[in-house]
Design a protein around this nucleic acid. Structure first.
Length: 440
RNA sequence: GCGGGCGUCGCCAAGUGGUUAAGGCAGUGGCUUGUGGCGCCACCAUUCGGGGGUUCGAGUCCCCUCGCUCGCCCCA
């Protein structure tokens, strides 16, 4: 029988990886809690129309990247390609926006049918933040600040924040026609992709990666010049807000978001260490979306960050750190036992250690029944600080032999001592014990 | 959707048309039911991602396909 495989672009996270994910998730949770942002969870599956209307029919995401199908009730369903549309839908459906401004975050898998490459999969994971009902430029600033602080706290270096204003929808409409006029006049000098985009999505020509096109664009009308006084003032206040918080940013007049719902503030946090898919976090303002999805007119701002890309950066950043600092799931205690009485004693003791008053220990019991040296070898490899050695003798007199497994000289060395069982269970600072504090 | 590179054991990896597919790590069992980063012994790919073809003979050449990977597109 042929072994089954996961679908293309669907990735398993093995135990060696999950500690990185847990660290990011825990840090994010903590930052959201401290910023009074509440969690919302929405279904992975939504009606297709939500994304078609929310993200935009003409976008690549909707046009060719969605996992869409009909369910048994002939409903048109889509595995969510992003989180914002669902959050907005849920907020409208449950009348959240009517109850005042919402500060929400979400996390979980998203699905886009794309060709996998570095930092891009078909099932990928995002953590996102959405502020609904805030129009003040300070809400843009705070949203960005939360993302920035979170990434800084994770110790991911080499990041830069790029910022732009897309203006109001009127600004963009006006600019769009100016730009199309200009692009048509220079059609011959553009790369084929960009020529194509004049009719499909002219703003995207701005962030073309073609060097010749980029050089040519120096003479094109800029979005900044097309902004109304009001939009300009708004953008200024966002920049001043970031400066006041000492968050460094770089203005990028070419920064254009791919989803239709963005306007005014648009930003990306990118890393130089990621290859082609360099954006770790992206977001901006989307004042029209709530209304477009059938809700009351509601200003909004938000962002999403890509977990896979962040994990990539985090594991790079931690490569230089010592093994001790890297996140692992190593137990505190590895229990080695032999003999009928000893093995029973081990099971009992392990359970008691896991429920120790004050300081429960993470305990792994060796269940192999192999010889002591084999079990000890595994104890060393488990990464545990201590090994407990239990046999019938210890079971009989209520002692345990304790072995310190310390790092050093390229491996883990063990030094032994003895400790009474009640002390093992009551010692308040067990994990900090050193070998000479043992009973024998 | 388009282009480049690559697929030999869980991981790393030799092999480039000739008979039985190196080796290392990990794993399992033993020497050894009782002690320390060991050591020794044994086991661990009827088969080289899959399918066709060329050939007396294919892991090695050709075609298709699947997958991985990097880039384009796009995006987080």
């Amino acid at each position: 029988m042929k072994p089954l495989q996961s679908l293309r672009g669907m990735v398993d996270l093995l135990p060696g990886q999950t500690p990185f994910w847990q660290r990011i998730e825990a840090t994010a949770r903590d930052h959201f809690r401290r910023a009074a942002v509440e969690e919302i969870r929405t279904p992975l599956l939504e009606v297709t129309e939500l994304f078609a209307r929310g993200i935009g029919e003409a976008t690549d995401v909707v046009g060719k990247e969605m996992y869409s199908f009909e369910d048994r009730g002939e409903r048109h369903c889509t595995l969510r390609p992003e989180g914002t549309a669902s959050v907005v839908r849920a907020a409208i459906q449950h009348g959240l926006v009517a109850q005042g401004p919402q500060r929400l975050w979400y996390g979980g898998p998203m699905f886009r049918y794309e060709r996998p490459q570095a930092g891009r999969q078909r099932q990928f994971h995002q953590i996102g933040l959405e502020f609904l009902g805030h129009a003040d430029p300070r809400s843009d600033v705070e949203a960005i600040a939360i993302a920035w602080d979170l990434l800084m706290d994770l110790g991911v270096g080499g990041l830069s924040l790029e910022l732009n204003s897309l203006g109001s929808s009127d600004d963009r409409l006006r600019y769009r026609s100016d730009l199309v006029t200009w692009l048509e006049a220079h059609r011959e000098d553009l790369d084929p992709d960009s020529q194509q985009r004049i009719s499909t999505n002219p703003l995207r020509v701005l962030d073309s990666k073609n060097a010749q096109t980029q050089a040519l664009l120096a003479g094109a009308p800029t979005l900044a010049d097309a902004l109304s006084d009001e939009s300009r003032e708004r953008f200024l206040r966002v920049r001043q807000g970031l400066e006041a918080l000492a968050i460094p940013f770089r203005l990028n007049p070419r920064l254009v978001r791919g989803l239709d719902y963005y306007g005014h503030t648009a930003f990306e946090i990118t890393s130089s260490q990621l290859g082609a898919q360099a954006t770790v976090c992206g977001g901006g303002r989307y004042d029209g979306l709530v209304e477009q999805l059938g809700g009351p007119p509601t200003p909004a701002v938000g962002w999403a960050l890509g977990m896979e890309r962040l994990v990539l950066l985090l594991s790079q950043a931690l490569q230089d750190e010592s093994a001790e600092q890297r996140p692992t799931a190593a137990p505190d205690l590895y229990v080695v036992s032999r003999g009928v009485e000893g093995e029973a004693y081990a099971m009992r003791l392990a359970r008691q250690c896991r429920h120790r008053p004050g300081e429960p220990l993470a305990v792994q019991v060796d269940l192999s029944g192999a010889g002591f040296d084999k079990q000890l070898k595994r104890a060393r490899r488990s990464g545990a600080r201590w090994a407990l050695l239990l046999g019938d003798e210890e079971a009989a007199n209520g002692t345990v032999r304790l072995m310190l497994l310390v790092a050093g000289g390229g491996g883990r060395r063990a030094e032994g001592g003895e400790i009474q069982m009640d002390r093992l269970l009551s010692e308040t600072d067990f994990l900090a014990l050193s070998i000479d504090q043992l009973d024998a």
